[in-house]
Design a protein around this nucleic acid. Structure first.
Lengths: 126, 126
DNA sequence: GGAACACTGAAGGGATTGCTTGAGTATTCC
DNA sequence: GGAATACTCAAGCAATCCCTTCAGTGTTCC
């Protein structure tokens, strides 16, 4: 059945931000940033079940934040740079927009020719 | 009374990442990065009801990503720098850990004398 | 004063999340 | 071969999420 409320959950930025919104998963990323680890090594600091940690690993991997490789009976996890680059790129782009806007406003205040308070700026003022 | 201040930092990061994990909310941030807007101006590009947008605004505000101010009957929303700084700080710190590790590995490969990599750490290179 | 406007709050419903338990598979050690 | 290890899968359940509708509240306009 087609579900009505289903917005593009497949967007990778959605998955990345969602994956990072959990403190356990962030702690796992923290640990992996210091070096690769197996799933059970990753699970050790936490009190959760191994099955729960496996699910967290899957969430992080589907989000492109980590990559894993199975060798024998152990799966080794490590940070994947591309996922983080995507997240940081999004944040940086927005910050640049915001700072540019800030600069423009500063310039306007520094050299007022027509007065910025009217309504011509960006339609934000009723 | 039970004190629960121990996880404040992770809690606010939780909220920030969670808020950014929704495409509608990211689009709203995108719009606000270009300048402040009222709630209904913010709602205009989307097909959702105004009530839904109001809820998104509340999520973003509780996450510290935007700040709002009510004047008369309109509420004006704008980007709040602090929330984004927190998110970017977390990402930057992890990236630095990860890159430092990367450098250390490079140094180890360049001049191996007492490599502790026998078998305890992780066999990332066969 | 009354109508239009811009939200605001509560209630609900369907989907998703995060966790647990229990069972199963594949690999390594003895 | 048998036991221990390291996951892996499926089912189920409480909590949360996101959206809708409907009924307000407070402002502005005529």
């Amino acid at each position: 059945m087609i579900v009505k409320h289903m917005l593009d959950r497949s967007d990778s930025l959605d998955k990345a931000f969602h994956a990072l919104a959990d403190p356990t998963r962030r702690a796992m990323v923290d640990r992996l940033a210091r070096g690769p680890a197996s799933v059970s090594a990753l699970a050790e600091p936490f009190e959760a079940t191994l099955a729960a940690i496996v699910q967290h690993v899957q969430v992080l991997e589907r989000a492109g934040l980590i990559e894993t490789e199975k060798r024998g009976r152990t799966r080794t996890c490590r940070i994947a740079g591309s996922g983080f680059e995507q997240v940081e790129a999004w944040l940086t782009a927005r910050r640049q927009l915001w700072e540019r806007r800030f600069d423009a406003l500063g310039a306007l205040l520094a050299a007022p020719e027509e007065g910025p308070e009217a309504s011509g700026d960006s339609g934000e003022n009723p």
